[in-house]
C-alpha cells in the first residue's frame, strides 16, 4: 500500500549512543541513548521540554550533537547527511507548509527535491494522498487545511521518498479520533514492511497500542526502555480502580491483605497490582470475601504507569 519496492534491505534502524546537545546555557539533551529496530514502532515519550524534539532534529541531520554518536541505518548524519536524508522521512512538530501551493503540489515539490522524476512524482503523490485520506482535498490550497489535515499532509510528505527510517514528532496532535486510529494502522503497516518507526508523543494510550517498545526521556536523559509486548503488559505494575457497595469492608479487606490502596473521589479505591494475573486473583478473593464489587477497572496502562514512575521527580 505504501511502498513501491519496500525499504532498502539490511537497514539497521536508529542507534543513538550518549548524545548531548546544548543551546548556549540551555542543556536540551543531556545524555540520550536508544535503539530503534527495523520492523518495530518505537515510542519516544517524555514530558514537555525533555529533549524529544531536539533529539529528532539531530536524527534528521539538521543539528550536530555536541557529544555522542547517531547512526541511521549505519550512516552518520554529521559526516554523511546525504545518505541519511535519502533514507529518512521526518515529520516535524508543528508542520508548516507553503500556503500558496495546493496539497498535491506540496507533495510533488518535495518529490522533486528528492530528484524523483515528474511522472513518478505524480503517481507517488496520488498514492500518498489516498493513504492519508486527502485525495478529495488534493487541489485545495494547503493553507485552508485544518490542523489535523495538515498533520496528515505532513505524514504524507515524510513518506514521499519511501524512507526506511521514519522520524515522527507528535504525529497524532490535532487529529480527530478516526484519524488517530488510521494513523495507528499506517504506522503498524509501515513497521510491518520492515521500516524503522520512531514516534514521539504525549498520548500514552495511543502509543501503548501501536508501539513495540517505549523509550522514556526526562530532563534530557533516557530513563528507561520499556517493552510493550504482551508479556510486559501482563506482568507490569498497573493501577486498578475498585468501586463497591461496601466501602468499609473493602478497605478492611485490602488492609488485611496488605494491598497498598488509596482512596479516590466518589468512594472508590485505587490499588497497584503487578500483572493481570494478580489483578484477576484479587477480584476473585474480593468476591469470595463477600465484598459487593460494582466496578473493577484498570485506570492506567503499563506504559502510563512506567511513564509516571520515571518522571515522578520532575520539578
Amino acid at each position: 500500500m505504501l511502498t513501491e519496492g519496500g525499504p532498502t534491505s539490511g537497514g539497521r534502524g536508529i542507534e543513538v549512543a550518549g548524545v548531548r546537545r546544548a543551546f548556549g546555557d540551555v542543556l536540551a539533551v543531556d545524555d540520550i541513548s536508544l535503539t530503534a529496530r527495523p520492523g518495530e514502532v518505537t515510542a519516544l515519550i517524555g514530558p514537555n521540554g525533555s529533549g524529544k524534539t531536539t533529539l529528532l532534529l539531530m536524527l534528521a541531520s539538521l543539528l550536530v550533537p555536541d557529544r555522542g554518536t547517531v547512526r541511521i541505518d549505519g550512516h552518520d548524519p554529521v559526516t554523511a547527511p546525504a545518505e541519511v536524508r535519502a533514507r529518512i522521512g521526518w515529520m516535524p512538530d508543528g508542520f508548516g507548509t507553503w500556503d500558496a501551493l495546493t496539497v498535491r503540489e506540496v507533495l510533488e515539490t518535495i518529490a522533486a527535491a528528492y530528484r524523483i522524476p515528474a511522472p513518478q512524482a505524480r503517481e507517488r503523490a496520488e498514492a500518498l494522498l489516498h493513504t492519508v485520506h486527502l485525495a478529495d482535498l488534493a487541489d485545495r490550497r494547503a493553507r485552508v487545511l485544518s490542523r489535523g489535515q495538515k498533520q496528515r499532509l505532513g505524514l504524507a510528505r515524510a513518506l514521499v521518498n519511501d524512507p526506511s527510517v521514519l522520524l515522527l514528532d507528535e504525529p497524532a496532535s490535532g487529529l480527530d479520533p478516526r484519524s488517530r486510529i488510521e494513523l495507528r494502522d499506517i504506522l503498524r503497516s509501515l513497521a510491518a514492511e520492515g521500516r524503522t518507526v520512531l514516534v514521539s508523543s504525549h498520548i500514552l494510550t495511543e502509543l501503548q497500542e501501536v508501539a513495540d517498545r517505549a523509550v522514556i526521556v526526562a530532563r534530557g536523559r533516557s530513563i528507561e526502555t520499556q517493552q510493550l509486548d504482551g508479556e510486559a503488559v501482563t506482568t507490569a505494575l498497573a493501577s486498578w480502580r475498585i468501586d463497591s457497595l461496601d466501602p468499609l469492608r473493602l478497605t478492611e479487606f485490602l488492609t488485611s491483605r496488605h494491598v497498598p490502596a488509596q482512596q479516590v473521589h466518589g468512594g472508590m479505591v485505587e490499588v497497584e497490582v503487578a500483572g493481570e494475573e494478580n489483578a484477576a486473583r484479587l477480584l476473585t478473593d474480593l468476591i469470595g470475601a463477600g465484598v459487593r464489587v460494582t466496578a473493577f477497572t484498570p485506570t492506567r496502562g503499563a506504559l502510563e504507569s512506567a511513564y509516571l514512575a520515571a518522571t515522578e521527580d520532575r520539578q
Partner: peptide, 13 residues
Amino acid sequence: EHGVLATLQTTLL
C-alpha cells in the same frame, strides 16, 4: 518562521 525551510533541508537539496 513559517517552518518550511527545514522540510527542504532534510531532502536531497
